[in-house]
Design a protein around this nucleic acid. Structure first.
Length: 365
DNA sequence: AACTCGTGGAT
DNA sequence: TATCCAAGAGT
């Protein structure tokens, strides 16, 4: 007779035991030894780190997290900060809608919740920039709620544990059910973090270290001798290549013409040098005819930048002029102050192509 | 449901 | 070099 598989809930214990020994120490995390001494996670720290970590690697986040925390120690401080400062501090981290929503969320907490984060998944989910994942993660990690946390790491772990052959993203609801069944009432936050650490360090996309995995006696993908086959994903679309131009004008006083992009869409609300009207779907003009003002524009090479869904090749034009010229919009910024601007990486590349040492001229650098 | 939305490191 | 992909959210 066949043995019915027991409920999967008992898998939480070997995972938590593994986590107690092998957890990563991260700046925003209260590690098990600290928790044992009664240290509680700060919801502000948990929320800030979770937003930064959305589609972003741990190494990239660390410095930004520490910088934000030093500059805005509480959610109230962040709520009171000028948006331009927040966008400039976020520059380089990508997905800039996160920064816009971060500010909105901080304001909502400060103004509508007396400066205290909601302590339930539903309450958190209603805030700007907090989706299914982040609501569950903050509820579990900061408030010890038994929430089912599902991110890319956990999708991989679950898809292998149960050898789920349905492609993502269609398989997400099933995977979330599985996670909910596994999540314990005791230490749900550590369980979620343990699952993510496991996915990041053991159950990796390539060459998973199954010999070290606390689930290796239960993993169906390992039993099939092909863990790398999971998760199955839908095919991706090819990235189109778009072209455009960027214009770097420098006065004899060492000022560069900058302007602000519209609030929505690609690089929304960020600062740029004048560029032509390229988008993910439409090529922009590449010649100096499209410059913000007529001048002796000089070609300065091209910059290639790969976004998530398209590749951009920008023709760079530069000109040295005696003094300011009225552009239709924008402002003139000292080259020595470019580091303080909300310049996304693609714009730093464009400026560097025209002014090679532009970002080595900061006042305190 | 399918798109849009950055960046840099690993393989 | 090309591809993947990393603690996803908003529309």
């Amino acid at each position: 007779m066949m043995t019915l598989k027991t409920t999967t809930a008992p898998l939480a214990k070997p995972l938590l035991d593994w986590y107690d020994r092998h957890h990563r120490d991260l700046p925003w995390r209260v590690s098990p030894p600290m928790a044992k001494r009664g240290i509680k996670a700060d919801p502000y720290h948990v929320w800030l780190s979770e937003v930064m970590l959305q589609q972003t690697t741990v190494p990239a986040v660390k410095a930004y997290f520490l910088k934000f925390l030093a500059r805005w120690p509480t959610v109230g401080d962040l709520a009171a900060a000028p948006s331009e400062d927040v966008m400039a501090a976020w520059a380089g981290l990508g997905y800039y809608a996160r920064a816009r929503n971060l500010k909105k969320c901080a304001e909502a907490v400060a103004n509508d919740h007396s400066g205290v984060f909601p302590d339930t998944e539903d309450g958190l989910r209603a805030l700007p920039g907090i989706g299914d994942y982040t609501a569950a993660a903050v509820a579990a990690i900061a408030f010890n709620r038994q929430a089912a946390v599902m991110d890319g790491n956990i999708e991989r772990v679950i898809s292998r544990l149960y050898a789920i052959s349905t492609p993502l993203p269609a398989a997400k609801p099933l995977m979330k059910q599985k996670v909910a069944l596994l999540t314990p009432s005791d230490r749900p936050g550590d369980f979620a973090q343990a699952m993510m650490d496991l996915g990041a360090t053991i159950c990796t996309p390539k060459r998973p270290a199954c010999a070290l995995c606390p689930f290796n006696g239960s993993c169906e993908a390992l039993a099939l001798h092909d863990p790398e086959h999971f998760p199955v994903k839908a095919a991706k679309k090819a990235k189109p290549v778009r072209v455009g131009a960027a214009f770097v004008a420098v006065t004899s006083d060492g000022e560069v013409l900058l302007r602000r992009r519209i609030e929505s869409g690609l690089l929304g609300g960020m600062t740029e040098v004048p560029t032509t009207g390229w988008t993910a779907r439409i090529d922009g003009e590449t010649s100096a005819d499209a410059a913000p003002f007529a001048a002796d524009w000089q070609p300065s090479g091209t910059v290639t930048h790969v976004f998530t869904h398209f590749e951009l090749r920008l023709s760079i034009w530069r000109v040295a002029i005696p003094g300011r010229i009225n552009g239709d919009d924008g402002w003139w910024e000292p080259v020595t102050n470019l580091d303080a601007q909300a310049l996304p990486t693609v714009m730093k590349k464009a400026i560097t192509a025209a002014i090679p040492r532009a970002f080595q001229q900061s006042k305190d650098g």
